[in-house]
Design a protein around this nucleic acid. Structure first.
Lengths: 210, 210
DNA sequence: GTAAATTTTAATCAGGCGATTAAAAAATTT
DNA sequence: AAATTTTTTAATCGCCTGATTAAAATTTAC
């Protein structure tokens, strides 16, 4: 059925196909991607692609799950750390996403646009609900509100603001370049600055001013 | 060639096709959309669609330009108003986008994901560069920085933050619902709150605290 | 009511694309 | 060197989809 593993040599080809698939899928999305494109990008032929992964959809599912995973992982890895303060967690989340999307700039649009195609799949895969809602992160936020340190605003606004300020500038980069005539270097420098600025901004937004 | 205008009756059908196209394109994107879907959605047949608009791509271009237009218009209509203060403009921009995306929730992802397919087209259509850079809005911002009222942060951060906080929650709605188990009603209520909150947050972020 | 314009029907075409297959070739293992 | 595994080649199949066409049916205009 699938290629036998002679030592671990084949990992190379299988991984090469997956990497190619990631590149093309992220760039063009599922529908606009041709399996022939992936094969070419991987430097192999179409037959071999179907030899390793049985179909375009199977291959896509793998890429999508990986993307969805790293999306969620950037959050969950931080959420239940008992050693860090609320704002240390904010800084960690921002940094995590920045690093991730630096390597995979097309990932946000890819996930968010493909999700729109069939949201059911996402809903099934995600029973994380309680996982997030019961997290130490949220507990800390509620406690800070109780103590009067933080404005009594829905924690979802808190999360929305962090993710918005961090992720959206990646997504809208091309648009800002086109509209405002920003160069790649300028945009890059701005994004670098935001690593430090966003946590400060979040503090300003939610911390109660004496 | 194209249907003769008998009075202005035909506006009805042409517009119906365009509306259907907008719906389907926004939902599925260019590649995943079948012209047959659009025809069905419009309640007409495929032949008629090609009778009015010569091809799928022609029809798509119209929808894309409309979307791009309303995207930009929400900004430009406010940017050169000499009568409003800086923060009144912020409130106007937020409100403008909120109203727009309330009617067309899929517009942001649509534009931003299709833009990725061929960014060249966007770059050509947009010579707005000076239009934005020379706007009264930016002038006001620079003046406020000069006067020491506003933190000396790049105006692009200012713009990024406004658009991020406003637009991204629309885009990430499905994700937040899936991950955190948010209901439609909860999400809707949150978005309503943000109309008032975002301008306040912007002020907190950029106004110099005495 | 007749003429003109619009819309439908039905059939068809061409091209693209996902997928499969068998056999040859190349690489790897033993 | 022989056996086994991996990869290529080349051809093909079937389906989907965008697009076109001619004729019929329907609606609208005058």
């Amino acid at each position: 059925m699938s290629p036998k593993k002679t030592q671990e040599n084949d990992i190379s080809t299988e991984e090469r196909i997956k990497n190619a698939a990631r590149t093309v899928f992220h760039q063009k999305g599922y529908a606009a991607t041709r399996t022939r494109d992936i094969a070419e990008e991987a430097g192999i032929n179409l037959a071999l692609l179907n030899y390793y992964f049985r179909s375009k959809e199977k291959l896509f599912d793998i890429i999508m799950m990986e993307g969805l995973g790293s999306f969620v992982q950037s959050m969950t890895s931080v959420f239940n750390d008992q050693q860090t303060t609320l704002y240390e967690k904010v800084a960690a989340i921002v940094e995590g996403y920045m690093d991730l999307f630096w390597k995979e700039p097309e990932l946000p649009v890819f996930v968010l646009s493909e999700m729109r195609r069939n949201p059911e799949v996402l809903m099934e895969r995600m029973q994380h609900k309680q996982y997030i809602l019961d997290s130490y992160f949220l507990k800390q936020y509620f406690e800070a509100v109780e103590k009067g340190e933080v404005e009594p605003i829905s924690v979802f606004h808190f999360i929305m603001n962090i993710t918005s300020l961090t992720i959206f500038p990646f997504i809208s980069g091309p648009m800002l370049k086109a509209i405002a005539g920003l160069t790649n270097e300028q945009h890059q420098a701005l994004m670098q600055e935001r690593k430090k600025l966003i946590p400060q901004w979040i503090k300003l937004m939610f911390n109660k001013q004496a």
